[in-house]
């Protein structure tokens, strides 16, 4: 039998890799992809908990996370398109509109 903690560690490692990508990459598409990666790592742990605790709630949560992820990707990429129309760059360190 595979212990629950293995799944959790896998999830933690993948999440950290997602964080790494989010912090390192310049290309905004890759930044989004990293966010998806982080969401997936959470899904793994949720599914694992669901299995080991014999509760269906974890799977429901995964389902909801996937839905929200889809919405997030759609909106995020739409923002990216709208942004690209105005400033033809999608490099994370060149976008400094937050500066007042």
């Amino acid at each position: 039998m595979v212990p629950l903690s293995w799944y959790i560690m896998l999830s933690a490692v993948v999440f950290s890799i997602g964080v790494l990508g989010f912090l390192m990459r310049r290309n905004l598409i890759m930044v989004f992809l990293s966010i998806e990666l982080m969401l997936n790592s959470i899904n793994i742990s949720l599914a694992a908990f669901s299995h080991y605790l014999q509760s269906i709630t974890g799977q429901i949560m995964v389902f909801l996370v996937i839905t929200v992820a889809a919405a997030e990707a759609a909106i995020g990429l739409a923002i990216l398109m709208a942004f690209y129309k105005n400033n033809p760059t999608i490099k994370a360190d060149e976008i400094n509109l937050l500066k007042g």
Binding site: V31, D93, I95, N96, L98
Partner: peptide, 14 residues
């Protein structure tokens, strides 16, 4: 320290 670059904010937040 307010560079306006969102990824540096993300870094600090992380």
């Amino acid at each position: 320290i307010q560079t306006g670059v969102f990824s540096s904010y993300a870094l600090v937040m992380a």
